[in-house]
Design a binder for these strands. Structure first.
Length: 488
RNA sequence: GCCGCCUUAGCUCAGUUGGUUAGAGCGCUAGAUUGUGGCUCUAGAGGUCCUCGGUUCGAAUCCGAGAGGUGGUACCA
């Protein structure tokens, strides 16, 4: 009452969320299903620690005292800066560089783990979340990309997405590079501005993107975004390129050949996509699961070749009846320069990653709730502290029989104990009072059945007399009777 | 990072032109019911009215700053 000045506020830091049993069950189910697929593809499990040295993450800023660009950083006692990993790829690159000599190459691994990003949280965006990631390091073959794509598609399907709920969209950075070279764009900054503009295609439409490719765009709030400064004809070429996606993979390739053919880098990109197409076809991945889409960007600066994005196609309504679009649930691509940061040797690599809780909420919206309500244990009601040994003998017997059970350990009366069991979603409560102990019997209350029966009862006396779902039987028949209730 | 809106009980919210002890519904705890979930009735607990400063005899209410939330926008490994 008087010491409240220093009392802490009970709240989680912003962008950090608590996970109840239901969500955890869904996420674990996804991980186990996806892991099974990834292992079948020959990827081995691998994990690193949560912290990396900040320079290994590429987040050490020479000018700043503190590496603060989106990472959580702290200083070790030898004054080196460490940071919580912000994805699973950078630690993988560090590990591969460190163990290159002894690794079987190509190195194929998958990982899932918590990552942290020190940035503004938004709807569906947190500062701590679980990522699942698979990479092949040490293969430059486009077939390595194809296999990652096929595996991603199969993984999403195994997680519970139906055919047609999602599609993998594939592009290649080299195509756009070739196009830009032909259009006379040479500076890195301008190239990045073009990529950013194209990335907004689905939100702003071709007209909005045209402004961003040219002089710039002013949005409704009056904010002005500087454009890439392309000429009108160059902007037209970019837009024509992004619109070349078709439902059929080879048809898209033919169209793209017309739009960008002739530039050396563009031809290289086309050849890679063509081999990806052939490998995918061999793997049995049709155009219903993976297509070529030249508008895919994946804003990341480090991608060097193929890029891909898993897009959710399903549309659903939120609790207010507003339609929600999920868009991308995951993505990846080829990053041939990441390991070279450490060793100087270029090491080709390709990978795919997705956010686990994002996929879980997408699945929920698709009507595929893997985290069905978690059932509570069978609850043994406590009448008298003197009979505690009898309660524990009973609960031990149930546990030995493989039935989740607990003795109520609170201090409230019987009514509250029933309420507790109800709220835990327990299948049954066991009443072992003085009467039962004397008679060598036990009373089981089937809570689901009682709940169903209670809807018809309005009269209190009848409710009390009826004791819906309740049966008293000889002690020896307890476990078989409980099994029947649990299996119902 | 920039712009808009919002912040009153655990939740959803009401609160008159600035006026005395800040309310409702739901939820929670308990009683009616010697040993029973629901219904009904009754009682109870629960509040730094986001924070700090200002105006005023008087502020949940008006003004300023800050924090947090939210929606855009920018960025996104």
């Amino acid at each position: 009452m008087t010491d409240d000045i220093s009392r802490p506020l009970a709240r989680a830091p912003r962008g950090f969320v608590d996970h109840r049993a239901r969500d955890l069950a869904a996420e674990r189910e996804i991980l186990s299903r996806v892991s099974a697929v990834y292992e079948r593809y020959g990827f081995e499990a691998f994990d690193t620690g949560a912290l990396e040295y900040a320079d290994a993450l590429g987040k050490f800023l020479p000018d700043a005292d503190r590496p603060n660009e989106g990472v959580f950083a702290l200083q070790d006692d030898d004054e080196q800066w460490m940071a919580l990993r912000y994805d699973l790829t950078a630690p993988l690159a560090r590990f591969v560089a460190q163990s290159w000599e002894t690794l079987p190459k190509p190195f194929r691994r998958y990982a899932f783990g918590t990552v942290w990003r020190n940035e503004k949280p938004g709807p569906g965006r947190f500062r701590e979340f679980t990522q699942c990631d698979a990479d092949t390091v040490g293969s430059a073959r486009p077939e390595a990309d194809a296999e990652i794509i096929a595996m991603a598609a199969e993984g999403l399907g195994a997680a519970g997405l139906a055919q047609g709920d999602y599609v993998l969209k594939i592009n290649n950075r080299k195509l756009l590079n070739g196009l830009l070279v032909r259009a006379g764009v040479t500076t890195e900054g301008q190239k990045l501005a073009v990529l950013r503009a194209v990335d907004k295609l689905d939100r702003l439409g071709p007209d909005g993107v045209r402004y961003l490719l040219g002089e710039g765009r002013k949005d409704e709030s009056g904010a002005f975004t500087k454009g890439a400064g392309l000429s009108t004809s160059a902007a037209d070429a970019v837009l024509a390129f992004t619109a070349a996606g078709r439902a059929d993979r080879t048809e898209t390739l033919d169209l793209l050949a017309n739009v960008i053919g002739g530039s050396a880098e563009g031809d290289e990109g086309l050849a890679e996509l063509s081999r990806i197409d052939q490998a995918l076809t061999g793997l049995g991945v049709g155009a219903d699961q993976a297509i070529f889409d030249p508008s895919v960007v994946r804003g990341l600066e480090y991608y060097t070749g193929a890029v891909f994005e898993a897009e959710l196609l399903l549309r659903s309504l939120d609790e207010k009846g507003q339609p929600i679009r999920f868009g991308s649930v995951g993505g990846g691509g080829r990053y041939d320069d990441l390991v070279a940061r450490f060793t100087g040797e270029p090491v080709p690599a390709t990978g795919f990653s997705f956010g686990v809780s994002r996929l879980a909420s997408a699945l929920r919206a698709a009507g595929q709730d893997l985290g069905r309500q978690t059932r509570g244990p069978v609850v043994v009601i406590v009448f008298s502290p003197d009979d505690m040994p009898a309660y524990f003998a009973l609960v031990a017997e149930l546990r030995a029989a493989g039935i989740a059970a607990e003795v109520y350990l609170g201090s409230s009366g019987m009514k509250a104990q029933m309420k507790y069991a109800d709220r835990r979603l327990s299948p049954a409560a066991i009443i072992l009072g003085g009467d039962e102990i004397l008679a060598g019997t036990v009373t089981i209350k089937d809570l689901d059945l009682g709940r169903a029966l209670s809807t018809g009862v309005t009269d209190n006396a009848a409710w009390r007399a009826e004791r819906p779902g309740q049966q008293t039987l000889p002690r020896a028949e307890l476990i078989p009777a409980l099994r029947r209730i649990l299996e119902a």
